[in-house]
Design a protein around this nucleic acid. Structure first.
Lengths: 341, 341
DNA sequence: TGCCATTGCGCAAACGCTTGCGCGACTCAG
DNA sequence: CTGAGTCGCGCAAGCGTTTGCGCAATGGCA
């Protein structure tokens, strides 16, 4: 099964030098066809696979891994996002012969120190950064270390000296606002989070811009991202206010689903009394009642693109930065409709 | 930032030998406290992190990675499962200083050949196997290669000469059947899949065993796992048969959600005319209308256990095999009730 | 004072692979 | 028949670590 599992052993069995085997397997031109085929056959038969560590060591570059560092509870409740993201990355990278590896930052540790460790140990040839903040220390470090990376989401830097891919939340939220406006809505609500994530800024700005000058009002309810109690309280307050909005847009589907539940609890009919829009199109959105109207930000596809971008960056470290803004498309379902009255 | 990023450079700067630095950092007893502290300080200051490939090469063991090989479309539509599983594994492994890496089997490739490649290249110190089949060629290979692994799900081997962890689907399905029986149901349906997965066997057997001798009838509808058209046709046929079941149990939530949709389409009230039970408690289950009664198989926790089991196996290759059967607990919601009439 | 044990460190080999260089054996033109 | 050019391969160094062994210096004991 694995008779000769090292290059040296293979070479000995064949009566040639290790150098020849190495070159034959690499398709080096200065090896005769005859020898190459003999070596290939023997390698095949022995089930020989080069030792990755040894190769990485001698070539200096090329551990064959790309890293994704994950944080708890940052990603903790977003299994579906994680699943799609990881799957898309993995598929994209595997097609280039690269593996994805995941590290979780330990309790009390910082993501930055984990990244330093990865870079230092040369465990990865590149990194993927998620959950980008406007002023992200990770990108500063990686830029300084000249380590290849791509981010999912933008920082505040514009133009950014690195590769990013982002979903165009601004345009989507503007579109959502316009659609609702056209349906007669004039009192808008936005359910958002406290955390200063880059995507929050963009989506909020898009909504505000679309509403500017139309005379429509906007009230905003925010809460800590993973504090469902505070979240529900904020939503409930918004929906029981004297001049409650007739249309609420939510930063992401998780919030919209909560709005749906609370509206039901309050006896508000959706979309009769209240229109609700989400963002992301997570799996439960389709099964909610009423089914949630939302925007699909094709995470799987985005992740595949990110993989390609990173591979390109790794092979051309000083190519000009690539930025990719992908549209989110509207998924009309049953949670929005004409304004009441 | 990374002034002296190799051991040798660090040693030169300190005026000692590389061996001393290596030993000092490893906490070797034959190094004086004084020297050790000096070295540690310098390493800290330089941000030195040992090169993983070099270490792995010389120690022979210890790439510091554990692999999970994923297959498309096997995992393709189960993002939530993937997310939880990967997250649980990653957390469990990271607490032992090990990283998880993912490989996707390329189109047209076999998972077995990918595994062979991983083992041969010594990219991983252990493997995690999901989607176990009763007669799984992967475990045969890994057993023969004496490579550490754990499986999520059992094979047909009993007792198995390897570590596995499984959700006790048999008991859960038996419990489900009993609950429904006690609610007066006598005509049962099972919505299942064609594929001979191990979990299918166990759940089906549990259901059959619970119904045996009670006089209750069971009709089974199966279809290829990822063929939604065939699935819907099979379900529809079951629900429009002359003596259609009053209670249907589904191999997993995805099927139950489909049953809910089709029942609604057929004008059958759930749970008035029809009781439906799922399995897994995926995210959409809670948001379905009626909310789906199901069994929770805590995937996150299971994955954490798997990580621990694998780490244990890697450090004690010849310890007796560990088997862990974890119960799935019933999550009563709104999709089941007393039998009609 | 002489001897042995202990302590603290350096030398050098090794892990499995890649690659620059060199060397012999051809081929072919002059 | 000689010289240069090409081809096919081996030698050996080296990637960054770890680790067995050896050696000098120190200390304790008789």
């Amino acid at each position: 099964m694995d008779g000769a599992s090292t290059l040296k052993a293979l070479a000995r069995d064949l009566g040639v030098s290790a150098a020849t085997v190495s070159r034959a397997l690499a398709g080096h031109p200065r090896i005769s066809r005859e020898t190459r085929e003999k070596v290939e056959a023997a390698a095949q038969a022995a089930g020989y696979v080069p030792n990755r560590a040894a190769r990485a060591l001698v070539t200096g570059k090329g551990s064959g891994f790309v890293g994704l560092v994950m944080q708890d509870p940052g990603y903790g409740r977003e299994h579906s996002y994680v699943g799609e993201f990881v799957q898309g990355l993995g598929q994209g990278l595997s097609s280039h012969g690269i593996d994805l590896f995941l590290t979780f930052v330990p309790d009390g540790g910082s993501e930055l120190s984990v990244i330093r460790n990865i870079v230092g140990s040369r465990r990865a040839d590149g990194l993927i950064l998620g959950r980008t903040t406007p002023d992200d220390p990770r990108v500063d470090y990686l830029l300084a270390a000249r380590f290849p990376f791509v981010t999912h989401g933008r920082t505040a830097a514009d133009p950014a000296p690195f590769d990013w891919l982002d979903t165009d939340g601004a345009t989507a939220f503007a579109e959502g606002a316009r659609r609702l406006f056209d349906l007669g809505h004039r009192r808008f609500g936005l359910v958002s989070i406290d955390e200063p994530m880059a995507f929050r800024t963009h989506r909020t700005d898009g909504l505000r811009a679309a509403l500017a000058g139309t005379g429509a009002t906007l009230t905003v309810a925010t809460s800590p991202r993973y504090d469902t109690t505070a979240r529900d309280a904020a939503i409930r307050a918004m929906l029981t206010a004297p001049d409650r909005p007739t249309a609420v847009m939510c930063l992401f589907d998780g919030l919209a689903l909560a709005v749906l539940d609370i509206a039901a609890d309050l006896g508000l009919s959706v979309p009769g009394d209240l229109s609700v829009l989400g963002f992301d199109n997570i799996a439960p959105a389709a099964h909610a009642r009423p089914a949630l109207s939302t925007f699909d930000s094709d995470t799987l596809q985005a992740a595949r693109h990110l993989a390609d971008m990173l591979v390109a960056r790794m092979s051309a470290p000083s190519a000009p930065p690539v930025h990719r803004l992908i549209p989110a498309h509207f998924v009309p379902r049953a949670s929005h409709g004409p304004a009441p009255g």
